Amino acid sequence: MSASFPDPGAPGGESVAVTLTKAGRVKIRYPAELVRDDGTRVSVRAPWAAPGVRDFGFVRFEPGDVLTEHYWRDRWFAVKEVRTGDGVLKGWYCDITRPAVLADGVLAVEDLDLDLWVSADGTSVLRLDEDEFDASGLAGRDPAAAGEAVRALDELERLARAGELTGLLA
């Protein structure tokens, strides 16, 4: 099934399938509402798609949570605003990814293991999964991509610590 998309910058409302791959396999696929596509950044909104509760210790993702996810065609990351079902901001979960591709109703994103968490009040900025990234072997297989991934994580952390992360989402 294929969906039609508005011209870049047109109002959203279309349905897309977000497909997140990791190490060549589909990690998760879920429906989302296309909120915005300006030709560079694609923003979608979707309920928490994984089954049950995922407790990371610093945040809990649970049924009813709503994520507004921002993907770029020219950047190596995605920023996901996480809110409870009644709209309370939990924070931002940032995935380091290859640039996103939107085609034929599918928003395809390749997860590169590195992540960043930023709490709602901005006081907690956590680099995540650096051990998984090291174990993935990406640096050996694709040194250029590994370099982009590390640079993207550093950029997001710098923006978060400076209180400028939300400026990316305006």
Rank of each mutant, 00 (worst) to 15 (best):
residue 93 Y to E: 08
residue 108 A to Q: 14
residue 120 A to R: 01
residue 112 L to D: 04
residue 99 P to M: 12
residue 116 L to Q: 07
residue 109 V to S: 04
residue 121 D to I: 09
residue 108 A to P: 04
residue 119 S to D: 03
residue 116 L to C: 15
residue 98 R to L: 13
residue 95 D to M: 12
residue 108 A to E: 13
residue 117 W to F: 15
residue 116 L to V: 15
residue 99 P to R: 14
residue 97 T to P: 13
residue 111 D to N: 10
residue 101 V to L: 12
residue 97 T to M: 06
residue 113 D to T: 06
residue 117 W to Q: 04
residue 100 A to K: 07
residue 113 D to R: 13
residue 118 V to F: 00
residue 99 P to S: 13
residue 116 L to H: 05
residue 121 D to Q: 02
residue 111 D to A: 06
residue 92 W to P: 01
residue 110 E to I: 01
residue 110 E to Y: 06
residue 93 Y to M: 10
residue 94 C to V: 15
residue 92 W to T: 01
residue 121 D to V: 05
residue 94 C to K: 09
residue 98 R to H: 09
residue 107 L to P: 05
residue 115 D to T: 10
residue 92 W to R: 05
residue 116 L to M: 09
residue 111 D to M: 08
residue 95 D to E: 14
residue 113 D to C: 10
residue 113 D to M: 10
residue 102 L to R: 11
residue 116 L to S: 03
residue 110 E to A: 10
residue 112 L to E: 01
residue 96 I to N: 03
residue 114 L to G: 03
residue 111 D to W: 02
residue 117 W to R: 05
residue 97 T to H: 09
residue 99 P to F: 12
residue 96 I to C: 05
residue 111 D to Q: 09
residue 109 V to H: 04
residue 115 D to G: 11
residue 97 T to G: 12
residue 113 D to P: 01
residue 99 P to G: 14
residue 120 A to P: 03
residue 104 D to M: 00
residue 95 D to T: 08
residue 101 V to F: 01
residue 120 A to V: 04
residue 105 G to W: 08
residue 97 T to L: 06
residue 114 L to I: 04
residue 105 G to C: 08
residue 110 E to P: 02
residue 92 W to D: 05
residue 118 V to S: 04
residue 101 V to S: 10
residue 120 A to C: 03
residue 104 D to K: 08
residue 98 R to A: 15
residue 102 L to T: 10
residue 104 D to L: 06
residue 97 T to Y: 08
residue 111 D to G: 09
residue 93 Y to R: 04
residue 110 E to T: 14
residue 102 L to W: 10
residue 107 L to K: 09
residue 104 D to F: 02
residue 105 G to Y: 06
residue 119 S to L: 00
residue 96 I to F: 09
residue 109 V to E: 02
residue 119 S to A: 14
residue 113 D to W: 15
residue 108 A to G: 12
residue 92 W to C: 05
residue 97 T to N: 15
residue 110 E to D: 15
residue 115 D to L: 14
residue 120 A to Q: 01
residue 115 D to A: 13
residue 114 L to K: 05
residue 110 E to G: 04
residue 120 A to F: 00
residue 109 V to L: 00
residue 119 S to P: 02
